[in-house]
Design a protein around this nucleic acid. Sequence first.
RNA 1: GCGAGCGUGGCGGAACUGGUAGACGCGCAGGAUUUAGGAUCCUGUGGGGUGACCCGUCCGGGUUCGAGUCCCGGCGCUCGUACCA
Length: 814
Amino acid sequence: MPETPSYQPTEIEAKWRDRWRERRTNEPDLGGAERPFYNLMMFPYPSAEGLHVGNLFAFTGADVFGRFKRMQGFDVFEPIGFDAFGIHSENYAIKVGTHPAELIPRNIANFTRQLTRMGGMFSWEHVLSTTDREYYRWTQWIFVQLFKQGLAYKKKGVVNWCPGCKTVLANEQVIAGACERCGSVVEQRVLEQWYFRITDYAGRLLENLDDPAAMDWSPSTVLAQKNWIGRSQGAEIRFAVEGHDATIAVYTTRPDTLFGATFMVLAPEHPLVAQITTDAQRDAVERYRGDAAAKDLVSRKVGDKEKTGVPTGAMAINPATGDAIPIWIADYVLMDYGTGAIMAVPGHDERDFAFATKFGMAITRVVAGEGESADTPLDEAFVDNIAGRLVHSGAFDGLTVPEAKARIIDWLETEGHGTGQVQFRLYDWCISRQRYWGPPIPIIYCDGCGPVPVPEDQLPVELPQIEDFRPDDSGISPLARHEEWYFTSCPSCGARARRETDVSDTFLDSAWYFLRYPSSGMDDRPFDADLTRRWLPVASYIGGNEHAVLHLLYSRFVTMALKDAGHLDFEEPFRKFRAHGLIVKDGAKMSKSRGNVVIPDEYIDKWGADTFRTYLMFLGPFQEGGDFRDAGISGPRRFLDKVWDLVTLATDPDSRDGEIRRDVLTKWHQVKQRVSEDLEALHYNTAIAALMELVNALRDCQCAEPKLIGELVQMTAPFAPHFAEECWERLGHDDSVFDSTWPAFDPALTIEETVTVAVQVGGKTRGTISVANDADQATAEVAARADEAVARHLDGKTVRKVIWVPGRLLNFVV
RNA sequence: GCGAGCGUGGCGGAACUGGUAGACGCGCAGGAUUUAGGAUCCUGUGGGGUGACCCGUCCGGGUUCGAGUCCCGGCGCUCGUACCA
């Protein structure tokens, strides 16, 4: 027997990496593709540490799908890029004292090396980085489009300010009221910032989620978006203030409990507070407002804190009862939701109950549950809003809660005290960042003309290469310190004017990158109309559920806005979205702070990229993630070795077995069916298991029929692409295995000739029989009664009934 | 607190619409080969008795001829969210 080379991953992988590049294997014909399939994955943020196993797991899973679709005959476009702007890069740059513009290309080079090495089917000719001038030019263009539609506006907003780092912090950088980096106590600062009116789109963003034709998304992601948008139905009710001209509007989802509103609470920032506060209470109110303002944003909102508050001294009139009720301020009422004021119904709201108990306010029952009367005492808030009936509510007594909601809203509307209303929890998107490392917001302030967008032909507003990019005490972006950049002339009147110094949020960079990929390199337009029509919406998007809300929602919003402006002809960018699972290590999510990050390079060195990919896809269900333990990696490697040996066998005419046994033939077709279905459903772990079963069966009978082995190689190709190419070539093919046609199965051949049927007596399995696959009950019963163990258990018993599940089970009920 | 998901051998995990629980892999044990180690191959592998028997899918009930799967009530873990009126 001739000496055959064993499987040497390092050489093979290098060979095919080169070949794919030389032959442009992974570059589809973007302009002419007939069956375009846009296979998108979430582009990475190029950190200094490099890609870790979690990243690779996600990319491999998406790549497997893309390769599968390609072999099904689609023209697959699988681009990759780098989300390289943002506070993470900037903070890291500050920490190591290197300019981000110098750091980022290094990180990108390292990521590119790793991504190439893992064998992704990436269209490298369309790679992009959000930090490229030619990219962020169009990010700014998007801002201008939204501005022109009235969707970008400025208002005062509150930010977290760290006096130690002298910088604005994101909410997640504030831990227990302190800066995560230096530990200083974080304060609130009020700054003028740019916002996008995403709330204008709340209804559409919500409704489309229920349109399966436009959106086939993981149910968990859909639910997360629905909760985030947070539609609620209720009423706005106006309360007159005693002795003032003013009325206070509140939003409530429980207008049925209006008769139980025994006090009102305003957010400390509510604009009416100063006007209605009595002189006696003014000091206490001012002190309370000052304390509330000093807290950071997170601890103001988070936690089941003790309720605090002070009375304003003013009284309001409950429009239903005519009673005068006290008006308080308390920080459990938030200015950014609803109207910033509530009617407090302590009998039927837990928070109001806690507040009323602490401060000795009246608690009135206005809903009685089953078995309760109007005067059953309330030990806690009664919040059931379906079964109860109204009490102490005048003419509305006896109504159920849903009935009462409608009737009271009618009453409010006729009396002019309020209206039915829908409210969303979603708030407008603040896109200003008082930082350096981002695209400058393309706005110029002119004393005469006001804020003017930079004309599109003057974009980009370049981010200047400044050395002192650190934020300082002022709370103003570092760009403001550079006069030559800061001062400019007004695009409309030519007068001396100033540039906006805030940069935009990284979520804006990533809210449109999928539009750019097909058109990357075009310097006269953000995205080409023809290419966009051909390739979008995205056919498949795979990414982490940590972006279930913000990134995906912002992308949808930007797409809708661009459609409304006539730049796109669809409004949902991702036809299909699947969330992948999380790789955990030692029972915890991989993260630098836990110190359990695994870098893939050493594993690839040792085992090869193909083995590593197969292992990652095998260790658990892709959409649930799994436990990274390097102990199991030898299994997938042994699998590839065995396939390699079968290929060797198939190419050796002497040792080949010409005829395929019937049971092997059945297995072959069953496996083709299972692998095809599993890949479509992203059930990669079971697809690999099926392939292993086939390999075991083939080795068992020393069968290496070339067509069969060829199809085995094709089916391993999505997981182990370099390996499969090499095997395919050894089998005598000149073309790429990825240009071959995915194996078809014959349903008739997936059916086994004889099947094993379980025989139960009284529901307990007592034996098995082997019968023809189309055997009827009578045949099976005869065979079953002939079984010794079955006969013994039937002895002396009366069979009352027989359950027959064809091909599976026979149960004698005794 | 609320929302979602999950709980199966020593381990990662299989099990379609309720129908032989533990596919596939790791590990482990025994054997073959080898000067030895490694690698490879074969066999076995849920637990207990070890005879044709019993017990087993987090716990407790229920429906059913039959429950990992369905229903009710607990416990535990993970993720998301954070006073949303």
